[in-house]
Design a protein around this nucleic acid. Structure first.
Lengths: 335, 335
DNA sequence: CTGAAAGCGCTTACAG
DNA sequence: CTGAAAGCGCTTACAG
């Protein structure tokens, strides 16, 4: 049923090499021959098969984004930035969702780059330990990290310590003392950094750090970066610390849950989220902005340059996140 | 640098067939041989190459989701459902983002299935005209449609006419008359159906239909299914129709924008959205629920069955959407 | 349980 | 501009 290059060649009375050339945009084909081949190909719905092309040419024209969980606003925005860039450059994007946990997680990551299904890889929020990174280093495959960095890899990330610091310090500078933090999975690297920044702000201000003010909800699903996780955490926090007077939240999506918890419990304290996802502007959520689309675009650019020159100097781009003030901190921080 | 099956075979002192069998989970290999091969493969980081396997076996173990735009909450949820199902079954998911517009859009769709990079395809919100569907029908490729249906294709969709009808009728039954609708790109099929349901509710209640009450914001980006689109539409609507007393919104994400517009203009009328994305519960948005994750899972199931039996009867699953009442219609519709 | 060999559908020097 | 031929790295009857 499905026709091959041989069928087209026979019908057109040319060699398979010629048919191949027509489809590979080679200009070493006469106008006349090209038209004939194209017409026949069109009539039978022929198009070169991806796998055969990939094997023979050793090029797939594909770059692969490797992400730990699907359906996450942060990834969605980054993927949007990647897609915009890639489309312009004629590359195809494949998205690989690593579903494993623990050791299996790394095995999946390693597996996917070994299979050589793409010419280059964008790792989004893939956090590994040094042994694992070193091991990945052995593979002669272009990889650019997003939201992570490690010696020897190109990367594009945001300073999480600084982001959390800015949010917390803003509260402190406005006179707040009892500032909670809604956290998520403790082993998550961005969380560790954000907790570090949060702590640092207290240290710099000579305020004692109270670990019981860092709380998270259930972390089983999406590492706790969910509305529900924020809701649970805020509820818990208010019950344990009725005198809480401000709160920093590890993600905007958790902040959405936290806002509802406050509403349900009829308390109202200033809140700062993290990410600046699109809805934040509309619900008036103050937040620490990460330039997600830009990060996707820059990382893509970096990867393509690496693919063209494997001895280019390693580039590590580190963004400074920005504090955006809106209604959720109104009348307090805004002036 | 990268080793092949030949290298492994030579080092292990076996034939390439044996190495291949070790990796294809065939059990026709002695324990001893398998261990030896695996050890050597591990030491050099060998893994069969996807393209060579795909070509030789004519199987890619991959299914492809074809989506029109990246970064859309509706797709994200559906993809989540697909991913959950697929992971259990050992298939890989590739996501293809159709970026073209107009004729080019269909060409991209056709192109992607011709390349045979996957064993089966899930088309999410891919809306074509009859000629185009018929043309796609010629290809001997398993395809399941999500959020669309067409004669001869397996599909999983939701009754958009009914959804819009339910929302509008609920308003009418509560005594509202001047009910606006926030729409999006007029040529979008779900929008056409939702407008139809909206109209139908008026007809059934013998109320005159006022087309000027159907408004949309800018539709350039994501067909207008954006916070901004909803914001603009609501602002416009309130200005043109100060006596508006309720509003149905074509998506929750637009409703988020609409809520802000109401807030900015200091008006407050009941609002019903569409989709029931995760945040809706937390911001108290009444909505028409589409079972997005379920749709993804069921469609995946359907596709896999089709892949195993190409003469199975066509299945067209049509969900009835459900009205969910929350704070945005409080005290009015809730009892 | 194992190997030799043909084949999957392309690309790409090489020669003309 | 075009063709013959080798090769890409696997899988899979077939035979033993």
């Amino acid at each position: 049923m499905a026709s091959t290059i041989y069928d087209i060649a026979k019908k057109a009375g040319v060699s398979i090499a010629t048919v191949s050339r027509v489809f590979s945009q080679s200009n070493n084909v006469s106008e006349k021959t090209r038209d004939k081949v194209l017409k026949i190909a069109e009539s039978v719905g022929y198009h070169p098969q991806a796998y055969a092309q990939g094997l023979a040419s050793k090029k797939s024209n594909t770059i692969m984004a490797v992400v730990p969980v699907m359906s996450n606003y942060f990834f969605m925005e980054i993927l949007g930035g990647i897609q915009d860039k890639l489309t312009k450059l004629g590359y195809e994007l494949t998205i690989y969702n690593v579903t494993g946990t623990g050791d299996n997680f790394f095995q999946q990551v390693e597996h996917v780059i070994r299979r050589r299904a793409a010419e280059g890889y964008l790792f989004i929020s893939i956090h590994l330990n040094p042994d694992q990174w070193d091991r990945l280093h052995k593979y002669p495959v272009p990889i650019t990290l997003i939201d992570e960095f490690y010696e020897g890899f190109d990367s594009v990330s945001v300073d999480n310590v600084q982001g959390a610091y800015k949010a917390t310090k803003a509260f402190i500078d406005s006179g707040y003392q009892k500032i909670g933090m809604i956290s998520a999975l403790a082993s998550s690297k961005p969380i560790q950094d954000r907790i570090k920044g949060y702590e640092l702000a207290f240290e710099d201000s000579d305020i004692d750090f109270d670990p019981s003010l860092v709380v998270s909800g259930n972390t089983d699903y999406r590492d706790g970066f969910t509305e529900k996780g924020g809701y649970e955490a805020m509820k818990h926090m208010i019950q344990e610390h009725p005198s809480l007077d401000a709160c920093f939240c590890a993600s905007d999506i958790q902040a959405v849950g936290a806002l509802k918890a406050m509403d349900d419990l009829e308390v109202s304290i200033p809140l700062i989220g993290y990410d600046d996802i699109e809805i934040s502007e509309y619900i008036g959520l103050s937040t620490i902005r990460q330039p997600m689309r830009d990060m996707g675009a820059i990382a893509t650019q970096t990867l393509l340059e690496r693919m063209n020159d494997d001895k280019k100097a390693i580039s590590q781009t580190l963004y400074s996140p920005q504090l955006i003030l809106r209604k959720s901190t109104n009348g307090i921080l805004n002036k």
